[in-house]
Design a protein around this nucleic acid. Structure first.
Length: 299
DNA sequence: AATAGACACAACCGCCGAGAT
DNA sequence: TATCTCGGCGGTTGTGTCTAT
């Protein structure tokens, strides 16, 4: 009769994750790899739903996540990919491997939606059917033909890029077999960053007076300093010098895998082609106004 | 300095397809 | 084959922070 339930729904904790919980989760993933989320609560003692554990890992702890503000380049990519794919945040995120779908979705909802609305209401929209770019102007017919060809090319690139799924699993490169913890090094950075932020944002007096039941508690159940515990578990003495996101930049990066289950689909070649296409001014203009409802046959 | 409203983002909810039993 | 959960996804909500008054 089907599978057994993933976890006992009664007594499952909700709300923000504590550093202590993060450490337990990362520790589990380090030993067992991502996946089998059902086993996480039972194996770690975490009073969290398996789903919550997966989400926490995916959005905050997995290797290669970049935090902070979005660059212009990222912003353009999101806008164009959203125009092309719609609200397929996971698909969009596969082109921005340092960002999570949740991040992109939030960024879209809080920033880009408004920004685009402003742009669309603002100057620069021509009503006469000709399309201008920075350097030249072409007829609508020429433009439509060129666009169809471009869309075909982009669709192929998308298809190729997305079809990387299930062909290889780069999460466990060969060397990881002999170097336990190798592929999770940046998870330690993610956590240490969270811890550092927590320390930074928590006044000392408050910090020292907090008990372990506090959501932001920095101390473990037995009064253990979690930063020390964490350091002894994983070690992040080199955090300061290695935590910059460049380590995970597209070129020469260790293959970052979203969620630990998908290979990074961003082989440089297809992405660059798609990027170039997406960032083309004319395509940008067109896609900004493009409606999939009116073009159901494109895909 | 106090307050209200806007904003940002982490986390949860509900749905769906795939797969296990 | 039927039933059930898992894993993944997109939408939504809750809450802390910022800003204007």
């Amino acid at each position: 009769m089907g599978r057994p339930p993933c976890c006992d729904k009664i007594g499952v904790k909700k709300g923000p994750w504590t550093p202590e919980e993060d450490i337990m989760l990362v520790s589990f993933v380090q030993e067992n790899g991502p996946g089998n989320w059902r086993a996480v609560p039972a194996s770690t003692g975490l009073r969290r739903c398996s789903k919550s554990c997966r989400l926490r890992w995916t959005n905050y702890l997995r290797p290669g996540i970049k935090r902070g503000s979005f660059t212009d380049h990222e912003e353009k990519m999101i806008i164009q990919l959203q125009a092309l794919l719609g609200n397929k945040w996971a698909a969009i995120a596969s082109y921005l491997p340092e960002r999570t779908d949740n991040d992109i979705k939030n960024y879209w909802n809080t920033h880009l939606k408004k920004k685009l609305k402003k742009l669309q209401n603002g100057p620069g929209h021509q009503e006469n059917g000709s399309i201008s770019s920075n350097s030249h102007s072409i007829s609508r017919g020429q433009w439509e033909r060129r666009l169809q060809a471009d869309i075909h090319t982009a669709k192929q690139a998308l298809k190729d890029a997305l079809s990387f799924e299930n062909t290889t699993n780069n999460y466990f490169p060969d060397e990881c077999d002999t170097k336990p913890g190798f592929s999770y090094a940046s998870s330690t950075e993610n956590i240490s960053r969270l811890l550092k932020e927590w320390v930074k944002n928590t006044p000392k007096s408050e910090n020292s007076s907090k008990c372990s039941s506090s959501q932001n508690s920095y101390e473990g159940k037995n009064g253990i300093d979690l930063s020390e515990a964490f350091e002894s578990l994983f070690g992040f003495e080199n955090f300061e010098k290695s935590s910059n996101s460049d380590e995970f930049s597209r070129s020469g990066s260790p293959s970052i895998v979203r969620d630990g289950t998908k290979p990074d689909p961003t082989g440089l070649a297809p992405l660059s082609m798609l990027e170039n296409w997406l960032l083309d001014d004319q395509v940008k203009d067109y896609l900004t106004n493009f409606s999939f409802d009116e073009n159901p046959d494109l895909f």
